[in-house]
Amino acid sequence: MQDLMWQLKDIDALSVYITLLFAGAVFWFIREIIDAPMLAVFSLPALVIGGLLVPAFFRSEVIVLTPDQEANAAATCALGVLGALILMVAGKWLWLVYKERQVQRTKLAALQSQVFPEQPPSQ
């Protein structure tokens, strides 16, 4: 856990700016195009965290996507934001599948009709 904290401390400013740019673009997309402002607000921290954790992970595992440092920072931040977005979409989809199955399994109770109440049998 301490290693992760030290790695997060060493994140450069370029990675932070690129992550905020990508997360802001996804925030705008969710808010304007999908028309879900609350989902955009709640997803923004997850997008930023994903964008900052992936470069730290790639740096710790010595994974280099491109030899250029700026392009590598942009690519890893983009992968982090995209990964966080995919995880959120998958979680939302699984939640909807679960709720759909739950609604599908419910049994409706039989109700008596109030329009034509049953008459007692006449003798």
Rank of each mutant, 00 (worst) to 15 (best):
V103D: 10
L44N: 03
N72W: 05
L53F: 14
Q104E: 11
G50P: 02
R59S: 12
I30G: 04
A110G: 10
V64E: 13
L94H: 10
E32R: 02
Q112A: 14
A90C: 12
A90T: 14
K92N: 12
V64C: 09
A90M: 12
P45C: 13
L108S: 10
F27L: 00
A71Q: 12
E61P: 09
C77Q: 03
A74K: 06
A56W: 05
K107D: 00
W28P: 00
A75W: 05
A110I: 15
Q69V: 15
L47P: 01
V103K: 13
K107T: 08
E70A: 14
I86K: 00
L82G: 13
W28T: 07
L79Q: 01
I30N: 01
W95P: 02
N72H: 07
E100S: 12
F42V: 11
A74Y: 04
V103N: 13
G80D: 01
P45Q: 04
I63D: 01
A110L: 14
R31V: 02
P55V: 06
E70C: 03
L52A: 07
L108K: 14
A73R: 12
L79V: 02
T66H: 02
A40I: 04
A46C: 13
Q69F: 15
L108Y: 07
L111K: 11
A73W: 03
E70G: 10
G50V: 02
A109H: 10
W95A: 15
V103H: 11
E32L: 05
A74L: 07
P37D: 05
K99M: 09
M38K: 15
C77L: 01
A109E: 11
W93E: 14
S113C: 12
W95H: 09
Q112E: 15
R59H: 11
L85Q: 05
S113H: 09
W93G: 11
A75R: 02
A109R: 10
Q69D: 14
G91M: 09
D35Q: 10
A74Q: 01
Y98N: 10
A46S: 13
Q69N: 14
V54Q: 03
T66E: 09
A46K: 09
L108A: 07
I63W: 13
I49N: 02
E32V: 10
E70H: 15
I86H: 01
L82T: 11
W28G: 00
Q102W: 04
V26F: 05
A110V: 15
I30F: 06
F57S: 10
A109I: 13
L52W: 06
P55S: 06
C77W: 04
I33G: 00
D35H: 06
V81L: 00
I49H: 01
A109S: 03
K107P: 09
M88V: 09
F42D: 09
Q112W: 13
P67Y: 09
K99G: 00
W95T: 14
I63K: 04
F42M: 15
G83A: 03
R59F: 08
D35L: 09
L65H: 01
